[in-house]
């Protein structure tokens, strides 16, 4: 199947011959539903019947809002999160130029972006590794 002219020439070779890569050539047909009378078939049919009956109707149900505001974090999590965000964004600014990517939207905060990230980058890896392990490592595990 051909592709539109909007695909850059240097990327065209990555595009498969089918519209969806995982369908591929010579793929087997997907597995049919579980056999009639099986427990899996029954569970699936029950779920679908119930879901269809409830679709578009009001009322709360289990799992309809699986989202939560971040709990008040401990200091260790604040430190890790702030540092990680700033370092990832600095890295994205550096590598994004390769493909002409836009700059990441800066949400790290002034301290992390302007103080922490430059200072961290100047520290040798052997010291950084100890810092990282101490602040964000796990305890009670053997080494991999």
């Amino acid at each position: 199947m051909g592709h539109g002219p909007e695909i850059p020439e240097h990327l065209a070779e990555y595009f498969g011959h089918d519209k969806v890569a995982h369908r591929g050539r010579g793929g087997l047909p997907a597995a049919p539903p579980a056999p009639p009378g099986s427990t899996a078939r029954k569970a699936g049919e029950n779920a679908v019947a119930d879901g269809l009956a409830r679709a578009g109707t009001p009322g709360r149900r289990p799992g309809d809002h699986p989202a939560a505001l971040a709990p008040k974090p401990a200091l260790s999590r604040v430190m890790r999160s702030g540092g990680e965000t700033a370092l990832m964004q600095a890295s994205q600014r550096r590598f994004g130029t390769v493909t002409g990517a836009p700059a990441p939207h800066g949400s790290a905060g002034w301290f992390w972006r302007s103080v922490f990230a430059p200072v961290y980058s100047a520290i040798p890896w052997s010291i950084k590794k100890r810092m990282v392990t101490m602040t964000s490592g796990v305890k009670g595990w053997r080494k991999g």
């Binding site: 997907a30 539903p33 427990t39 699936g44 049919e45 779920a47 879901g51």
Partner: peptide, 11 residues
Amino acid sequence: PDFERLFLAGP
């Protein structure tokens, strides 16, 4: 094609 196929077992 359908959600039924995602079920692996019943309770």
